[in-house]
Write a protein that binds this DNA or RNA. Sequence first.
DNA 1: AACGTTACCGGTAACGTTGCCGGCAACACG
DNA 2: CGTGTTGCCGGCAACGTTACCGGTAACGTT
Lengths: 341, 341
Amino acid sequence: MTIKDIARLCGVSVSTVSRVINDRPDVSPAVRAAVLEAVRKSNYIPNNSARVLVSSSSDAVGLVVRGLSNPFYSDIIKVIGRSIDEAGYTMVMQQIGSREDEIQCGAVMEREKKLRGIVFLGGRSDYTAEELRPITVPFVCCSYDNSFGSLGADRLSTVSIDDGQTAYSAVSRLCALGHRRIAALVSETDDRSISELRYRGYLRALADHGVEPDPALVACAGSFGLEDAYRATRELVAGGAGFSAMFIIADAMAIAAVKALEDCGREVPRDCSVIAVDGLPLSQYIHPTLTTMCQPSERMGAESVRILLDMIEGRSGNRRLVLESELRGGASVAPPRGAAD
Amino acid sequence: MTIKDIARLCGVSVSTVSRVINDRPDVSPAVRAAVLEAVRKSNYIPNNSARVLVSSSSDAVGLVVRGLSNPFYSDIIKVIGRSIDEAGYTMVMQQIGSREDEIQCGAVMEREKKLRGIVFLGGRSDYTAEELRPITVPFVCCSYDNSFGSLGADRLSTVSIDDGQTAYSAVSRLCALGHRRIAALVSETDDRSISELRYRGYLRALADHGVEPDPALVACAGSFGLEDAYRATRELVAGGAGFSAMFIIADAMAIAAVKALEDCGREVPRDCSVIAVDGLPLSQYIHPTLTTMCQPSERMGAESVRILLDMIEGRSGNRRLVLESELRGGASVAPPRGAAD
DNA sequence: AACGTTACCGGTAACGTTGCCGGCAACACG
DNA sequence: CGTGTTGCCGGCAACGTTACCGGTAACGTT
């Protein structure tokens, strides 16, 4: 079934059929109806390749995700997929490992698959204009917070919470309860990662509450994985530097950390409070329920796609959107033992 | 940069360039090297749309996943994505809701995106030849167990554990410890769902151990979601029918169920043992660690793609692969209280 | 009455690639 | 020497669609 068959069926030219299909003017209502009817009952589907070939622009939108294993991304991907689909585009997902460069990956995909736009999920949080050069289509960085500066800002679109401020709020909460020895569990030491952003918020909160930061209280897991977080926490405890609370950059890591603490004989929150960032639905169902800073994951996904499509379809330029995070109280935080009430 | 430009650059015809690019014979080594060199340093990428148009077969493989929220699928999707990618194909993911039909969805995708093959993940476990008619490309059902019969079996490929047997093993384990009042938490009552398969395994185990099944002990959550599982479990407890153990068809549901039990004042495993199916990495990190039947998720994903590609590339016909599941002991199972040791 | 305007429609050249056919050497065989 | 056979290469049509140009009829406008 091709456009030519439909044309023959209706006794019109292929041009006219093309016009009808693409909702263009210059077609009489009668002919339009007839063509539409023929299309319907022969369930003809336009050949996308031919369209792309002649117009040299496809309906594909790329999703480059770093760290698919992070459960926080599941919800976002779900919403992104659905949004892209509803808008009539096709999602092409690509996952990359920790050692690959997302910009490079995006650039290759853009050319190979003729992408109209790209959503980058997870990973680094800032790029220079030079780094962005290989990307020529609109793109949006989801769950990024480019607060390091405005490098490449004239092309960058971001949707995220304020990672630094969110971490600051979490740690401040611990300080307000009287905690002074607050450990941090981070993932990488990469200079521009989300981990780093949240770590800086942690440091700032300590400073504002007059607490001297102690390098011995910072554990680096190397990834967002459960195993690494578990091991890093055990090492932290074994290190001997005392602490009464932990700030953890991700819920998943916090779940592993809680187990590590308990395996070391420390009960949460009696012996050690735990606060994290993400707000996974799951973290309300574990014991103890996790106190965590909730990210509006669904909104993040939806807004990312909205901004991207606005750019693709020329409705607007690049934008930066910072959404609110919100404390969800759980049972994993308490005042330090022996705190004077 | 088109194939014509490369041809001009090398002083050969487009046909020859096409032959080189597609690794076909009838090209002298000298010319081949020259073309390859020109391709390399002009970093030319063949126009996929033109290729697809003329050969009417793309490099796209569809992934139709039902219930993306199920964390068990995360790992599988990760492996599937990577495998498809490594084989030089492109993955196009589509998620469907509980009320949509995956076959219909696959059929539409197949035509719109010119798919070479489809991986169906999650959902129903059996189709008739008639239902399969709209699908004309090779496909494989991952995490399905078509044990209801061999409807459409001449076209069906499946990769899964033996769901019935796995559930049977889990429940038998509870019976062996002395449990007689064993509740079940399932998701849907759909006649051909995975939930149903596991439920039948549960019934069979009860029968083989001389335990009379009690309909009051079967809770239906309606989905794999945490909320539904939590609510269903609370209702089960509120129902008043006593039980000393629960069999739960998915780890994620079990996590919610454990919380529900504890919120009702029942400690796991002291007052109620819990055993589940899936083997999420996460379930080793919660308290109590979950006793569960592990599915080899990575292998399932990898084998699904392998079988699919074998069919696409004509190396073999449809196949059925049943992988072993394996009990992972946790702290959520114990003998019933007052059991005579 | 002549001319411009509008509404509608058809023909055709592209888009970049591959498949098929044919051609031209060089070589082997009888 | 004639007749295949093989290795290598170029020309050309086709894939299905859209953009562009041109054409016709009907309807105003001066």
